[in-house]
Design a protein around this nucleic acid. Structure first.
Lengths: 175, 175
DNA sequence: TCTTGACCATCCACTGTAGACCGTGCCACG
DNA sequence: CGTGGCACGGTCTACAGTGGATGGTCAAGA
């Protein structure tokens, strides 16, 4: 009986259900599919793959060019993934350093703060724009509503954040 | 020249500007002030306090009852905090396991998924309600707009999330 | 008086992040 | 043709963050 999966390992297993992939591939697959709301790093991918290989949830197959090692799910891996999926997902975590800084606004000259705010707003506005584009492309590619739920989450989130920026008290926006 | 602060250590330093506190106090102060968008744990608080004491940014004062040790900022600590504050804050990070599960929806019986969705929606609706209450109380206590920016962020965020839940395709909401 | 619970801290294992580092095959361009 | 640069593919390490177990101490109430 292998120990319980963590969400990162589980997500890798999930992607491997669609066919063998190397760690490198998995990282890119994951970033594309869920990268905005589920970060993961190279180190982590390889760490989890090695651990799962130890536990027999995946097997390393076909060592290709440049140390490339594609992994495939085993039946045990499929079962572990199924079990992980059936547990209630944890709450989301948000860590937003800008809010930290705003909480200490009185220690900072107003102009500096306004500059931070402006830069962050620009980032969010750009992401929002990116989501709009992505939506158009996805629809053009024949995506169903169920395929757009994370994109939709992102759109709503970024919209809310941009509106929050625009509603900040003037002294935080303009210094 | 001490190494650069991380955001967690910096936030502790910030709170200590208002007077000496023990690790225990700091944890509660921080949870109350910034807990919803900046998580931190006991272990971390004590670890950072010890490290900052090593670096001379804080000093342990007045060992009180029950191993209680209140820490106070030093001048060096104030300077380190000021420097940390003046650097552009990093982007926010969001990790939402429910979105991960939704991305693998096709591997899950629809009813189970709908149950998860319903439970998460309830949590967010409750948080939103809590923010509304908190806003009323803060205003009654004479808070200025600038004191409400993080609360406002939370409110807009939770509003967006709840609306997202309500706009999910029917097969994800009802199974 | 005794017990329960809040207070206060320590420690550990695991997970997550960031970046340095290294080799290798591919391909564009001279 | 041949070579130099870049994308690929992976390893390693230090640090940061999470969660739970553990353990002692004081205060208040049964």
């Amino acid at each position: 009986m292998p120990r319980a999966l963590n969400a990162t390992a589980a997500s890798l297993l999930g992607f491997l259900h669609d066919g063998p992939q190397s760690g490198y591939d998995l990282l890119r697959t994951a970033e594309r599919a869920i990268g905005d709301f589920w970060s993961l790093t190279r180190s982590q991918v390889y760490r989890e793959l090695a651990a799962m290989a130890d536990d027999g949830l995946v097997v390393a197959a076909e060592v290709g060019a440049r140390d490339r090692r594609a992994y495939a799910v085993t039946d045990e891996g499929r079962e572990a993934f199924r079990q992980w999926l059936s547990r209630l997902p944890a709450e989301e975590q948000i860590r937003y350093p800008l809010l930290l800084v705003l909480a200490f606004a009185r220690h900072l000259p107003p102009g500096e703060l306004a500059a931070f705010v402006a830069q962050h707003r620009a980032v969010h506005a750009a992401r929002l724009e990116g989501y709009h584009q992505a939506r158009v492309e996805a629809l053009a590619a024949g995506a169903r509503p169920v395929d757009l739920v994370t994109l939709d989450f992102g759109t709503r989130y970024e919209t809310a954040v941009v509106e929050w920026f625009d509603a900040l008290p003037a002294e935080l926006r303009e210094g």
